[in-house]
Nucleic acid binder design. Structure first.
Length: 476
RNA sequence: GGCGCGGUAGCCAAGUGGUAAGGCCGGGCUCUGCAAAAGCCCCAUGCGUCGGUUCAAUUCCGACCCGCGCCUCCA
C-alpha cells in the first residue's frame, strides 16, 4: 500500500510513489518570510508538511525536502529599516528564531533551505528566459512583468477562468486593485522584477533591466528549479497560497523551461483558526510558540494540538485543545508503558525506527498505519492507536514487541516524542520537611496530623502523592 | 458574482449504502485512612433542514438554511 494524498489540482486522491527514473522524491514547501516570529498558524502548515515527510519516509520513500526562506520583500525591508539593521542581519535573526521554534516542535530540518537573497542570479536568469520567450515585458521604470495572457492554461491549479481578464481589475469589494503603482499592461500581470525605489535603501541588485529586486513568486520558481529540477513530485503550502502564488509559480516555471508538469502533486493545508476566528494582529489572537510555552504548554502538546485535526479542514486552536492534548499524550504514554512492560523493554529501549526500516512488524498498529496512509488522516490514526492501547487482551512478550515496532513508526511519522516531560523542579526544603513529617505521621496512624500537614503543603502549592512505599511531591 | 470548504454528542474530532472510531470533560465503581493516581464501566435511535433514490442513507442525488476560505503578494 502506498500513501494516498489529495491533490489540489486534480482534486483527487492519488498515490505518492517514487518515480522509476528518480533517486529522490522531490518535495518543495513554501517557507516563512522572516520578518518576525512565526505564529502557530504558520506552524500548523509546517507541522503538517513534516508529518507528510515523515510518513513518506516510513513508507519507504527517499524524500528530498526543500523549504525556502523568504528574506527579501516589502515586509523584511521595512522591518530591517525600522530596526536600524541591515537586511541580512535582520532576516538572519528571525531565521535563527524560526529554526529554534521548528526544532522545539520536532520538525525535521529540510534537506535544503535556500534563501531568496542567495538565489538572485537564478531568479534573474529565469526572468531573462521569460522575457526572451515573450512571456514577460519590461515596463518603463525597469520593472519586469509576467504577461499572463501568454500562458494559455493559467489558472489550472485553482480552476479559475481567466478568459475575462478585464474583471481582474477589481477585487471582491469592487474596488480598483491599485495597490501597487507599477505600470502593468493587464491587471492580472504580476511583477517578476521590481525596479529600485528610494525606500528600498541599500537592498537592490543589478539586472539586465537595471537595479532592483525580485518579485515574490519568482523566488520559489527559481529555487525549486535549482534544487529539484523543472519538474518534481510535490509542492506544498498553506491553502491561501493557491492563488496567486502557486498559480504564478506554475506559469513562471513552465513558461521559462518550456516543460509542462511543474509539480506532480499539490498539497495544501487548511488554516488554523483561534477561538473560531481567523488569526489577525488586530484581533490580538496571533499566538507565537513562545507565548504558548509561557502559558505552561509543552511543545509536544502544541504539536499534538496542531495535528489533531485533518489537514484539509480548518482547525480551531484553543487553550482547551492544548489541555486536551496534554491528557491525551499522558494516556498515550501510559499505554506505551504497559506495552513496554509486556515486552520486557525499558523506556530507553523505545527508540524511533531507523528510516527505510519498512519491513519490520506493525503488530496491532497495522490498521492505524493504513489509516494514516489514507490522505494523512492523523485524527483517524490516533483514534486507532488509542483503540489498540485500550485492548484488554494482554499481549505476549513477542506480540508486544511487534506492537512496539509499529507504534514507534507511527509516533515517528506523527513526530510525537514520548517521555520527554522535564523532571519536576525539586521542592524547597520547607516543603520536603513538611512532607517527611506528614509521612511519619501517616505511618504512625496520626491521620489528623497527616491531614493538617497535607493542607499546609497544599497552601504552599505542593501536592503529596502517596504510594505504597513512599510518596512524590508535585507542584499543583 | 466566480471557485472551493464545512455543519457528527458538553467541547474537539474520524468514518461508513446496512445501522455512529477516538480524545477531552462529566458520571458510576474498584483500589486507597484522606487526597491523588491508576484500572473498569457509562455517556449521540443520532450525524444542519426538507425532499428524492434504495430492501436499507448520517453516508448517494436535489433544494434550502447556517458558518468559513480565496478571488493579486496572508501558512
Amino acid at each position: 500500500m502506498a500513501v494516498f494524498l489529495h491533490d489540489t489540482m486534480s482534486r483527487e486522491l492519488r498515490p505518492l510513489l517514487m518515480k522509476p527514473d528518480r533517486a529522490l522524491f522531490g518535495m518543495y514547501c513554501c517557507g516563512p518570510t522572516v520578518y518576525g516570529p512565526a505564529h502557530i498558524g504558520n506552524f500548523r502548515t509546517f507541522t503538517v508538511q513534516d508529518v507528510l515527510r515523515r510518513t513518506l519516509e516510513v513508507a519507504g520513500l527517499r524524500v528530498k525536502h526543500v523549504r525556502n526562506i523568504t528574506d527579501v520583500d516589502d515586509k523584511t525591508i521595512r522591518g530591517a529599516q525600522a530596526a536600524g539593521q541591515t537586511l541580512t542581519a535582520f532576516t538572519q535573526q528571525w531565521t535563527d528564531k524560526f529554526h529554534r521554534d521548528c526544532q522545539a516542535l520536532g520538525l525535521l530540518a529540510p534537506h535544503v533551505e535556500p534563501s531568496a537573497v542567495a538565489h538572485i542570479p537564478q531568479q534573474v536568469a529565469m526572468i531573462k528566459a521569460l522575457v526572451d520567450r515573450g512571456h514577460a515585458y519590461v515596463a518603463k521604470d525597469g520593472s519586469v512583468y509576467f504577461k499572463v495572457c501568454t500562458c494559455k492554461d493559467y489558472g489550472k491549479l485553482t480552476h479559475l477562468d481567466f478568459s475575462k481578464l478585464e474583471t481582474q481589475g477589481t477585487n471582491s469589494a469592487g474596488e480598483a486593485n491599485d495597490a501597487d503603482e507599477y505600470e502593468r499592461e493587464s491587471a492580472s500581470d504580476f511583477a517578476l522584477w521590481k525596479s529600485r525605489k528610494p525606500e528600498d535603501g541599500a537592498n537592490f541588485w543589478p539586472s539586465p533591466w537595471g537595479e532592483g529586486r525580485p518579485g515574490w513568486h519568482i523566488e520559489c520558481s527559481a529555487m525549486s528549479l535549482e534544487h529539484l529540477g523543472a519538474t518534481f513530485d510535490l509542492h506544498g503550502g498553506g491553502i491561501d497560497l493557491c492563488f496567486p502564488h502557486h498559480e504564478n509559480e506554475i506559469a513562471q516555471t513552465e513558461c521559462a523551461t518550456g516543460i509542462q508538469g511543474f509539480a506532480a502533486h499539490w498539497f495544501h493545508s487548511a488554516h488554523l483558526l483561534v477561538d473560531g476566528d481567523k488569526m489577525s494582529k488586530s484581533k490580538g489572537n496571533l499566538y507565537t510558540l513562545d507565548q504558548l510555552i509561557a502559558k505552561g504548554f509543552t511543545t509536544t502538546e502544541v504539536r499534538y494540538a496542531l495535528i489533531a485535526g485533518h489537514y484539509r479542514s480548518s482547525l480551531n486552536f484553543t487553550f482547551k485543545g492544548v489541555e486536551d492534548a496534554h491528557s491525551a499524550l499522558a494516556k498515550l504514554e501510559r499505554g506505551t508503558d504497559r506495552l513496554l512492560v509486556a515486552a520486557g523493554f525499558t523506556r530507553a529501549e523505545f527508540l524511533p525506527p531507523a528510516t527505510q526500516e519498512t519491513q519490520t512488524a506493525w503488530g496491532r498498529f497495522q490498521h492505524a498505519w493504513e489509516v494514516l496512509q489514507n490522505d494523512l488522516n492523523v485524527p483517524g490514526c490516533l483514534g486507532q492507536v488509542f483503540t489498540v492501547l485500550a485492548d484488554k487482551d494482554e499481549p505476549t512478550s513477542a506480540q508486544a514487541r511487534q506492537d512496539l515496532s509499529g507504534l514507534a513508526k507511527i509516533l515517528y511519522a506523527l513526530g510525537l516524542t514520548l517521555f520527554t516531560a522535564a523532571p519536576v523542579a525539586a521542592a524547597p526544603a520547607e516543603v520536603v520537611a513538611l512532607a517527611a513529617q506528614r509521612w511519619a505521621a501517616k505511618q504512625a496512624k496520626d491521620f489528623a496530623a497527616a491531614d493538617r500537614l497535607r493542607q499546609e503543603l497544599t497552601a504552599l502549592g505542593w501536592a503529596m502523592l502517596d504510594r505504597k512505599d513512599g510518596y512524590d511531591l508535585k507542584p499543583v
